[in-house]
Simulated assay, not measured.
Amino acid sequence: MKLTKNLIRSALLATALVGTPAMADGPIKDRGEAVEQAHFQRDRETILAMAGDYKVRFDMQESTPWMDGYEPLDRKISGGYESVRVIEDTGTRIVLQHLLVVGDEGEEFVIKHWRQDWEYEPEKILTYTGPDTWEWVEMPERLRNGRWSQTVYQVDDSPRYAGWGEWQDSQGIRRWRSNWTTRPLARRDAVRDPVYDRYEGINRHQLTPTGWIHWQDNTKMMPDANAEDGLAPVVQEYVLNTYTRFDGYNTGAADAYWAATRDYWKAVRGMWDEVAAANGGITIAEEAQTGTVISGRLLTMGNAIQAGEMSEADAIAEARTLITEATAPGVAAAAKVAGANGDY
């Protein structure tokens, strides 16, 4: 009898352990209109709560090596001041623009940073699928209910990565966890020409009493023709970006920059959207220092508009030419081959 109970207990435990991950990403059953609406409204409030002014701490640590002989990098900690603004809110779509404020008092300089777009129950997301390439991927219909996608864009509004997940409450903490997402290398890694060429990661966003955190669990991957899926793990990395509410810097510098350039950047966002819709995604060459090969110029024109050195109309016209030519089918195909050969 004792043996039978132990076997039953072991079987139940094994079932629970195996079932937990699947349940976390399985379909959300229809909870009724009132409950669904309540969840939706709370999700919106949580996303919108990430807007504000912050002191930011970026903490990056390579940990477990998965490749024999690989030495993990030393821990890297940096920080700065960042203003996050809501630049679009349609109800089911919320867009947050990050603006870095750097420099000494009275000589502040604003750097347009990353952007995060949240969409409720999307049909598809623009995902990174390999060097220089982003493609539309359908989100399984059975998994859309109650979930939000987060698409992250680079400083020039070109795509970076996308994932989807559910906002949940557990252990008294409000959090969103993504599915596994593929991302291109960040500048901190790309400039070193490492053996790995992408991250496979899970992202978490969690509100805190003083702001919010963005936590990443990244596996750095390298091409390997002998691996089952053509990729092999190199090292694990943990990244914790902490946003603490703080207004002890010139937050007005961020707002002044955005007031001067928001129409230009709105036009740029529209251009990237047009390319993605027309081509089934985006293919554009990347470089280690700036992201895409046109990123530097797109950012420079934004600064020139604010300084009165370039008209908005001229900047928009040049941006259209840059984006059109850099993503043209012939150029895009050549960039993809060059990326595969490691020639850039």
Rank of each mutant, 00 (worst) to 15 (best):
M1C: 08
L7P: 00
L13H: 00
L13N: 00
T15M: 13
A16W: 05
L17I: 00
V18W: 05
A22V: 14
M23F: 11
G26L: 03
D30W: 04
D30M: 01
E33T: 09
A34K: 03
V35Y: 10
Q37C: 02
Q37P: 02
Q37R: 14
Q37E: 13
A38W: 04
A38S: 14
D43E: 08
A49M: 08
G52T: 07
F58T: 07
M60E: 14
M67G: 04
L73S: 14
I77W: 08
G80M: 14
E82K: 07
V84T: 15
I87L: 06
E88I: 05
R93Y: 05
Q97S: 06
D104I: 04
E108N: 14
F109I: 11
V110G: 02
K112M: 11
K112V: 09
R115T: 15
D117M: 12
E119M: 11
E119R: 13
E119K: 09
E121T: 02
K124C: 01
L126S: 05
T127K: 02
Y128G: 01
T129N: 03
G130R: 01
T133K: 04
E135W: 01
R147G: 06
S149Q: 07
S149H: 03
D156L: 07
P159Q: 01
D169C: 03
I173R: 13
W176V: 04
T182E: 06
R183K: 13
P184D: 10
R192Q: 03
R192W: 00
D193H: 13
Y196A: 00
Y196P: 01
H205Y: 15
H205A: 12
P209H: 06
G211I: 09
W215G: 03
D217R: 10
M221N: 00
D224M: 10
E228Y: 06
P233W: 05
Y243C: 12
Y243F: 15
T251Q: 04
Y257I: 00
R262K: 15
K266D: 12
V268P: 04
D273C: 04
A277Y: 05
A278H: 04
N279W: 04
N279K: 13
A285G: 07
E287D: 15
T290I: 05
T290N: 15
T300P: 02
N303F: 08
A304N: 07
G308N: 04
M310A: 08
A317S: 14
A317N: 10
E318D: 08
A319P: 07
R320P: 00
T321S: 14
L322M: 11
E325S: 10
A328G: 01
A328I: 01
V331H: 02
V331Y: 01
A333K: 11
A334E: 12
K336F: 05
K336M: 11
V337T: 13
A338E: 11
G342S: 01
